[in-house]
Write a protein that binds this DNA or RNA. Structure first.
Ligand SMILES: [Mn+2]
Ligand SMILES: [Mn+2]
Ligand SMILES: [Mn+2]
Ligand SMILES: [Mn+2]
Lengths: 229, 229
DNA sequence: GCTATAATTTAGTCTAGACTAAATTATAAG
DNA sequence: CTTATAATTTAGTCTAGACTAAATTATAGC
């Protein structure tokens, strides 16, 4: 069992780097210097610099081979999951208690995730009823940092004719989220795939609950994750 | 009307310096370099350095004359009040929504006050019902940064025989707050002064609501603020 | 008016985390 | 196998905000 590092021992920057590496790794693409730089809006040189420090820490938070990218150690992964937990709990709080819309929460949580204490995290989880998913359907690691299962099928890969349920929206872009919200494409809703174009990734779907048809482009078809009903 | 500076344009450090200067000035003693240093747990040299920057900003946030201490400009005062408002709203939230005790809130609010957005501040105030006082009885500036009146009489100056109501506790020390809490000396409660020693500042008082007598030393007699009933 | 003392300021460093520009490396294409 | 290109790393700076040690200043007491 790796000793878990308390968040207050990590700077805000360090927490954001670890989280970015974790999320890039989850997304499958691997955590290249440039992708970390893009995600955090810093220069590639800054990433190299930070990544070298993370690798030289005791205990090391990443393993790093020059020019071949970076991976989280177990300590690094736990630290990242801790920040992910806080981020998503805060998003849930913002929507359910403070009445934020789901496109407003990310920015706010991005700062607050670094400012809360372990006590705050614990009390917040209790207040919210130990939620397993955030407003975007993103899974919230529990207090032991175990992630609940979450759906893995992007809408654009669902078979035509199939009726599925939206369970997650993997995109932070506020404009995209507002648009999905207008359409009514939120976690929990049912969708029937009418047609699916493999070439240009456009979709025609029916929102079963609203008896409404909409056309979705590539960005939306990739962002909306679904599960079979 | 001075333009008010949005908090996100001020660093965490800057906000804390302005707040410290504001609170020292309120307490009456004047904001000397060394008292700011004490309050923020930094060296006097660091204070001089920061104070010079605050004076040279456009607009200036303080006026500064070497060796004679520092005063807030109107812009500086408004920025300080904004941070005070956030701090006290957060303390109220922590006690009333997350179940913190009043000795735990200060530390947490000291970080969160810098991390919330104007929207969070506004929604929080609505959620809490636009409270005018925080858990310690400290007045909360309203959205226009106007402070409600708060009581000004320290318990040690109340006349023997007088029955008064506790309205505020001016002290951040967790041990002192826990002790007052045990005694039952919280805002709202009635106290009758039995005796008051001007020399060693000890007090003997009766907690009218609990029909209990206690003896208070100088620190407590100065911290507990009361109003005539 | 002088001087001892305490408070304050100056001068010089340090660290974290960013940046740009230049150098290096991996690799795809010929 | 060579080379062009893109990605990455290195080298050198910068800023904010802290520090210590040394110098300076205000002022209280003689
Ligand atoms: Mn963040
Ligand atoms: Mn989310
Ligand atoms: Mn603070
Ligand atoms: Mn308070």
């Amino acid at each position: 069992m790796a000793a878990t590092i308390e968040p207050q021992l990590l700077t805000e920057s360090t927490q954001d780097y670890l989280k970015a590496i974790y999320e890039l790794t989850q997304a499958g693409g691997g955590a290249a210097t440039s992708s970390i730089a893009d995600r955090l809006s810093v220069s590639p040189a800054s990433v190299t610099n930070m990544v070298q420090k993370l690798a030289e820490r005791q205990p090391p938070l990443v393993t790093y081979r020059k020019h071949y990218g970076v991976e989280l150690t177990n300590e690094g992964r736990l630290a990242a999951l801790r920040t992910v937990r806080r981020h998503r709990l805060i998003e849930q709080f913002l929507t359910h208690v403070l009445g934020y819309s789901w496109d407003e929460v990310h920015q706010e949580a991005e700062r607050l995730e670094h400012a809360i204490s372990p006590l705050f995290e614990e009390r917040l989880a209790i207040l919210l009823g130990e939620p397993r998913f955030d407003p975007h359907g993103d899974p919230i690691p529990d207090a032991n940092l175990t992630l609940p299962d979450s759906c893995a099928l992007p809408l654009y890969r669902a078979a035509p004719g199939q009726v599925v349920r939206v369970c997650r929206v993997r995109n932070d872009n506020p404009a995209l989220l507002r648009y999905l919200d207008e359409l009514g494409l939120r976690p929990g809703l049912r969708v029937r795939v009418i047609s699916s174009q493999p070439v240009d990734y456009t979709l025609q779907v029916e929102l079963v609950d609203y008896d409404k048809q909409v056309v979705l482009g590539q960005a939306l078809g990739e962002a909306v994750m679904v599960e079979a009903i």
